[in-house]
Write a protein that binds this DNA or RNA. Structure first.
Lengths: 250, 250
DNA sequence: AAGTAGATTCCCATTCATCGGGAATCAGGG
DNA sequence: CCCTGATTCCCGATGAATGGGAATCTACTT
């Protein structure tokens, strides 16, 4: 048979299978994976079996499948997230120690903000981001700095698409976002009060590369009524440190 | 043709391709990948192209291939390394701050010690481990605690194989290692003077799970002549914290 | 204890995606 | 300008992957 209803290469399908795992759904049965990836049951089981043999997936106790440690190991060969994370970690620790709330690191990835790391204090608020989670560029302080200091073509592309609303405070008018971006460029940081959840405010600064583009964004999540001043100061200092670390290390 | 001279499924081949990337070789050309994976040139280029399309590999500026951010993202769905790392990071930071040398986190993976995280101080010594690096179980303090508190069957399996020698101080006699393991169990920690490189001593403690097995190992690397006492005390305290964090978080 | 629903494993004939040799094209270095 | 090596393109043969179906195997329910 090998029907392949559309351009459905083996590699693509493999990615589809891996994508059935999400930050919140980390264990599934082979049948669930098949259903979610749109695979016939027998095929799903065979494919999952192959992936388990290859070590990309792990089969625990009985039946339940999870992403394999091997995949993590291979992925760690990815220089970019690892390098940025390594460079930023010490500075993030300092920010976290002094400001005390969630401290986050994000990069621009496929027109979204991808969060590489988050340091949380036990007493910090709810978790609105998670490691390897994504948020829209226009609706988070991290996203705004990434966008403000990005390739103009990318800005146009993002603003041309409908802007998702997360709360009543999320700016969804392209004109308003454009104005916001200009402000971010002028001030050198972004403040996003209630964009993601009404009770908290995101504060972010860019980590610039040699071309002035944002290589990453450092951010903290504050209670909505907190003064952002001290956090901003810490973040700016941290960003300078990270810029130095990235430049030096090559 | 599709010759497949041996059991060479698409999945296996894919892993072979990814494995041509190592912690030290993070960028290659498509041709290099093909050569290292033992693929004919035209096949290599096609396969690499597919992987780039799928987002598992990235093609930068021109020609050079690196592991894609997407792969890191997918891999992060792997609950285990991430969960352990999250649980251990705060404790590791404290150890690192007080002891000041390399502070490491490792788990048991396929009969080797796999290092999940390393915090280094700028003034710490050479880098004998790296994130996502591996070391033999008998030749590192981390490996020894992982082995000492592991499934006995696994201990037998490891000791039955030839034990690689890294320095003159590396124990390679199964009897000596067995004695060492008993000592580790009795003391609750492992000290490995010069096992990996003559000038340094590894000190490790287990992070135990509910069954008493080692879920992970916390370790620091000290200069060979340093007293291990203070580091051990910190490590034991840290291990208890990590155990609590793992148990609590589920 | 039997009954049921779902997950998982096996089997196998069909077929289409994959394979790789080869040639053409594209850098770039001397 | 001519190499050398990387990369892309083409294409016919082939066998590995496919998925329907049936048989097992759990794990609950009645």
């Amino acid at each position: 048979m090998a029907n392949s209803p559309s351009g459905d290469s083996v590699t693509e399908r493999l990615v589809r299978v891996l994508e059935t795992f999400t930050p919140t759904r980390t264990v599934q049965t082979a049948a669930e994976i098949g259903r979610r990836a749109g695979l016939p049951s027998s095929t799903a089981h065979r494919v999952v079996g192959e992936l388990v043999d290859a070590g990309l997936l792990d089969r625990d106790g009985e039946g339940r499948i999870r992403v394999g440690v091997r995949l993590w190991e291979l992925a760690t060969r990815s220089s970019l997230p690892l390098r940025v994370r390594q460079a930023a970690l010490p500075a993030m620790e300092r920010v976290q120690a002094r400001v005390g709330e969630h401290t986050q690191l994000a990069i621009l990835e496929q027109d979204e903000a991808l969060f590489l790391e988050r340091l949380s204090s036990p007493d910090a608020g709810a978790n609105i981001t998670r490691v390897a989670g994504r948020l829209p560029l226009h609706a988070s302080s991290s996203g705004l700095v990434l966008l403000a200091f990005a390739d103009p073509a990318l800005q146009e592309r993002v603003l041309a698409r409908p802007l998702r609303r997360l709360t009543a405070s999320t700016p969804t008018d392209p004109v308003a976002v454009r104005r916001k971006l200009a402000e971010v460029r002028r001030l050198g940081h972004a403040i996003a009060p209630g964009f993601i959840e009404e009770v908290s405010t995101g504060v972010a600064v860019p980590v610039r590369d040699a071309n002035g583009r944002a290589a990453a964004a450092l951010s903290v999540v504050l209670p909505r009524d907190a003064a952002p001043g001290p956090a901003l100061e810490e973040l700016h200092r941290a960003a300078r440190d990270v810029e130095r670390a990235l430049a030096q290390h090559g």
